Structures are given as structure tokens and as C-alpha cells.
Simulated assay, not measured.
Amino acid sequence: MAKRKRRVFTPEFKADAVRLCKSGDRTIAQVANDLDLTETALRAWVKRADAQAPKSATSNELTTPEREELAELRRKVKRLEMEREILKKAATFFAKENT
């Protein structure tokens, strides 16, 4: 079996392929075969679309923008905690120096 050349697809094409899978009348395997895609790639697109879609209020799964925001906030908290520790040590140092 010859190795297939890597292809690049537009976001619109991916969204249309996912929409075909979600319409319910065909399986992912059938849609992949019809569009000459690998099942693995199409399943990954569907999974990514599910993760990015807004969820109901009861769902605990984060969307991609929420994950990015969470990572940024965690970096900021870590930096602020380091800064606070430095300021505590400096305050202790200067307090000892003045006595």
C-alpha cells in the first residue's frame, strides 16, 4: 500500500465533513470513504469540534478557549506567588536591618 501524500484541508471543509457525520444518516466510516479521508482524521475533527462546541450548563468539559484561558491564568498565578515570596523575603531582610 503506497503512502498517501499529506493533504491540507480548509476549516470550512472540515466543518462540512463534521456536519455530515453529525447529521446521523451516515457513519463516520461512510463519510470518510465518500470524501476520500482517513477515518482517523475525520474522528479527530469530530472530537475537536465537540470539544470546541459550547456545552450545556451541566457539562464539566472545557472548551478550547477556556483551556487556553485557564493555562494563562495559572501562569499568572504562579508568577504572582513568586513575586509575593520575593517581597516577603525582602521585607524580612529590611526589617532585620533596621533593628
Rank of each mutant, 00 (worst) to 15 (best):
R75K: 12
F94K: 14
E97Y: 09
A2Q: 08
A90I: 14
R26I: 06
L37E: 01
M82S: 14
A51K: 11
E83W: 14
R84E: 01
Q52H: 04
R19L: 07
L70V: 13
P54A: 03
A51Y: 02
N33F: 02
R75Q: 14
D34P: 00
S56F: 09
S59G: 02
A44C: 13
R84P: 02
A17V: 01
R84C: 09
E66A: 11
R74W: 14
A57T: 09
A17T: 04
D16P: 01
R26M: 13
A41I: 03
R84M: 13
F94S: 14
R6V: 06
N98D: 06
R7F: 10
R4Q: 06
K76M: 12
R48H: 07
I28K: 01
K5F: 06
A2M: 10
A29K: 03
K88S: 08
L73D: 03
V31K: 00
V18M: 04
S56R: 02
V31Y: 00
L80G: 11
E85R: 08
I86T: 14
S59P: 02
R48C: 02
A53L: 05
S23T: 15
K76V: 06
F94A: 11
A44K: 09
R7A: 09
F93N: 11
L87R: 08
V31R: 00
E72T: 05
V77D: 13
K5W: 10
R74G: 12
W45D: 01
D25N: 12
R43D: 05
L87P: 02
K3H: 07
P11V: 02
F13P: 03
E72Q: 05
I86N: 08
E85V: 06
T64K: 14
T27W: 10
R74P: 12
K5I: 10
T10R: 11
F94L: 15
E12S: 12
T40R: 04
A2T: 08
A44G: 11
E66T: 04
R7L: 11
A49Q: 02
